[in-house]
Each structure stands twice: as C-alpha cells, then as structure tokens.
Design a protein around this nucleic acid. Structure first.
Length: 109
DNA sequence: GCATTGACTAGGG
DNA sequence: GCCCTAGCCAATG
C-alpha cells in the first residue's frame, strides 16, 4: 500500500453521490495531476471496499474501460441520478465533481 | 532494478 | 467528428 494509492482511494471516496470525477481529477487530488493512468491502474478491480469507483470516469465523460462491468457502472451512475448514454455521461460538465468549487448542486441547466 | 503494461489525457491528422 | 501518436505515472512481471 503506497501513499499515493491511499490518497487516490480517499479522493474517490470523497466524491459525492450523483457526481462524477475523471481519472485526471483523482490524480490531481492525489498530488499527481499527470498520474491519470496510474489512478486507473490502482483501481484495477476496485481493490478497496467502500470506494465508488463507478463514479470515476474518463475525460470528456467517457466511461473508459472497466472491462465487462461497463454495464454495471452505467446502471450505478443512473441510480444516482446521472444520465449516461451508450458510452458517455450526459451533462458530464455539470455533474463533474469539483473539489475546489464544491458545488452542492448543478446550476442553470 | 529494468522492462512492459494499463480503467488515461491532450494534441494532431 | 473519429482515429492515431506522444507523454506521464504507478503497478506488475
């Protein structure tokens, strides 16, 4: 267990329900803005329990890989109120979790 | 300890 | 608007 890894997990757990964050965002929270790939590598298989890895998506609203669990990920996001297309998150820019701004709710649709 | 891989990102064609 | 290439970082073999 590396420090970076635990920080990544902590960042993911900080994502509020109904919100999503990109690997780059998680990496930034972990202190490595360019470690987006490493973030995905760490979450390989969602090692840590209680970690809403389904809220972690790719840049531009792309769900990313997630193997065959892509369907599950989409269902989980939809269950939280996040509209997900075939392979893209709708309103991603609105639902994107911003730790610095921490918007409680999306403004003007 | 070195080399390869991987749920990625941004830029160019 | 989609596909390919280059870059970056950590984990794994």
């Amino acid at each position: 267990m590396s420090v970076f890894r635990r920080r990544v997990i902590a960042a993911v757990r900080r994502i509020p329900p109904g919100r999503v964050a990109t690997y780059g965002d998680i990496a930034d929270l972990a202190g490595r803005p360019r470690a987006s790939r490493a973030v995905g590598n760490i979450m390989r298989g969602c090692s840590e329990p209680g970690t809403p890895c389904h809220r972690v998506i790719g840049a531009g609203g792309a769900l990313g890989g997630y193997g065959g669990y892509l369907q599950v990920k989409r269902e989980l996001l939809r269950a939280e109120g996040v509209e997900v297309g075939v392979a893209r998150v709708r309103g991603f820019d609105r639902l994107r979790w911003r730790p610095k701004t921490t918007r409680p709710a999306p403004l003007h649709v």
